[in-house]
Nucleic acid binder design. Structure first.
Lengths: 196, 196
DNA sequence: AGGATCTGACAACAGTTGTAGTCAACCGAG
DNA sequence: CTCGGTTGACTACAACTGTTGTCAGATCCT
């Protein structure tokens, strides 16, 4: 009887809770130790669960990594959508989007590192072609007003690279700059890209 | 007697030759399989040498990886220096530099991947802070004509990121564009960065 | 209380890693 | 021909990996 209550909660509840603990542990490890440190055993240690429960929620190590990445990606997407909605001018749209993204990764640098670095470093993600930045880049490209197909793609790829690099440098402390100035510069990059 | 000849060559000669074979194998693996595939054993297999000779030339796996990276970095630096020397105008300097870099990585994509990706993916490089792009970025920053210290740094970091991303996309085939157009666009990026 | 279910600690498997050591075979100088 | 430097194949070790299995004990329903 699967709906039977246990220690106050149902089985499905506890199972879901364990899944969340594993996801949280995966986010922590992938965002700090990086891909190599995110092993099944390490995740289980951090989540204070045994391997048995890992394979209860995920068939693979790969599935966990992908789930973590997509989880963070969804948060970023949602933050961007919320920020862009109801923005009157394109300039404000750019500013709001950049600000939302900066807030996300300053608030939790692990998410920034996962979003920006993990797809480059983890075979589980590269093999699946799980790379959200190109998706965001494509969205940006559609917003561009000038140029043909190829031109817009070139601009979008370059813009995403510029933003990523600035964010990464800011994250690891090698770019000492105030948060406001970071936002202002990124907004300028976005707006400048549209004007070629 | 270390200078004693053996099979026609001296010991030091053969030792240096083996070091080169190991470096070449490291370049091949790091530039294709990536960091994870570049193990001591894999390098030795590829170089057709045994582990003993690995530790004859390098104390660590880390030392080999760093040596490969710095080797490629030196080639890139030299190519850029050669390209920029004797360029009459800033515009031609930018074009020559970009063209030289594109030639380098189109000629041998492994070098491009090592230069652009390895420092992000290999702990042996990140741990040592071995990342040459910031160095290049600093050089670029010095060439910029406008802005204060921080501004130039922001612009330089962004520019390097944009170029890297475009190159990476071009390398892995996700950016279908002619080589000439790639060069032209990158030149435009460089020149555009100087004009804010 | 009995019996079904759930839990957690652990062992086992075969594989890879970095690093070090052993040992027979080879090769050229004296 | 013998001696010592040189070679390469091989083994050894401890630590890790992903994955699956076992088993004693806790927990709850009837």
């Amino acid at each position: 009887m699967p709906g039977r209550t246990w220690a106050g909660t149902t089985l499905d509840d506890r199972k879901a809770l364990r899944r969340e603990q594993l996801l949280a542990a995966g986010l922590e490890l992938l965002g700090t130790e990086g891909s190599a440190g995110t092993s099944v055993r390490a995740v289980c240690r951090r989540a204070k669960l045994t391997e048995r429960y890992f394979y209860e929620s995920f068939t693979d190590r790969e599935e966990l990594v992908a789930a973590v990445y997509e989880h963070v990606g969804e948060q970023a997407r949602q933050a961007l959508v919320d920020a862009v909605r109801d923005a009157p001018s394109p300039a404000l749209r750019a500013e709001n989007a950049v600000r939302a993204f900066v807030e996300l990764i300053v608030d939790d640098p692990r998410k920034g590192r996962i979003l920006l670095l993990a797809p480059l470093t983890d075979p589980a993600l590269t093999r699946r072609g799980l790379h959200l930045l190109p998706v965001f880049a494509a969205l940006v490209g559609e917003q561009l007003s000038h140029g043909d197909e190829t031109e817009r793609r070139l601009v979008a790829v370059g813009l995403v690279g510029a933003l990523s690099n600035v964010f990464i440098a800011y994250l690891d402390g090698s770019l000492k700059v105030s948060r406001e100035r970071l936002v202002a510069h990124c907004v300028k990059l976005v707006l400048g890209a549209d004007a070629h």
